[in-house]
Amino acid sequence: MRKYAKNINLILGSLILFVFLGMMVVSFFYTPYDVNSMDIPNKLQEPSSKHIFGTDEFGRDIFSRILKGSQTAFIVGALTVTIGVFFGVLIGGIAGYVGGWIDEIFMRFMDALMAFPGIILALMLVAVFGPGIINTSIALGIIAIPSIARVTRSGFVQQKEAEYVTASKLIGVQSYKIMFKHILPNISSQIIVAASIAFAIAMLAEAALSYLGLGVQPPDPSWGRMLKDAQAYLIASPWYTYAPGGAITLLVLGLYLLSNAIRDMMDPRSNS
């Protein structure tokens, strides 16, 4: 039964992810309508065979904008995770390997970052950095650092007493090589799981920031921003919210399922 459930997570999660990845790739070459061309006479049309998700307040095709919006979601997600993993592994690795007061200082600082409710820290950072795809990714990347650093640190603390590390030290391998060439590959699975969760959280957070009008800005299409625009027409055109809201939920759900499946595959002992 458990094995069956794992497979469902894996199949469903990767299916969702591949569909959205496919959408993103296609959107670089083709969208049914131009993403930004306005057609005011046809504004706020209900879903039909011509516009399967309807049109927005400027008469733009919502389906095309959903397709294009997947680019924004993946770019922000990927940038965020890259920043988070790079600095998280560096900080967590040094803290765990060196130990002592460096460990204490680094990790207390990470604790302090985690003490902020996520969205509050994100809002403060975008207040300083300003809106836009890059600034949003930097802000969310900073937020992703502590969780990756914690996972990495605990991995390093466990591994550094292992015999292969002692042996490497004895034959005079340099510390940075031990850390990143020998220890890091051994804890990569934990980092991958943490990174995939960070990816899902980043996509949700990007949508939230853009919904609040502080993340991705027009003309860059963003699902969160579309929901903000849709809310003004909520009562008259409720279907306007379904496509962007559904897209965010589905993609984030897929990522969570996949991260669960990866965790179960990499650590057969975990059964939560």
Binding site: M1, R2, Y4, A5, I8, A200, L204, A207, A208, Y211, G224, L227, A230, Q231, L234, T241, P244, G245, I248, T249, L250, V252, L253, Y256, L257, N260
Partner: peptide, 22 residues
Amino acid sequence: SDVVLSSVTQLGMAIPSFWLGM
């Protein structure tokens, strides 16, 4: 079953609160 319950949880984690509000 565990599968059903955990799907409910995953869905709860995935849905953006502002959309749920709408």
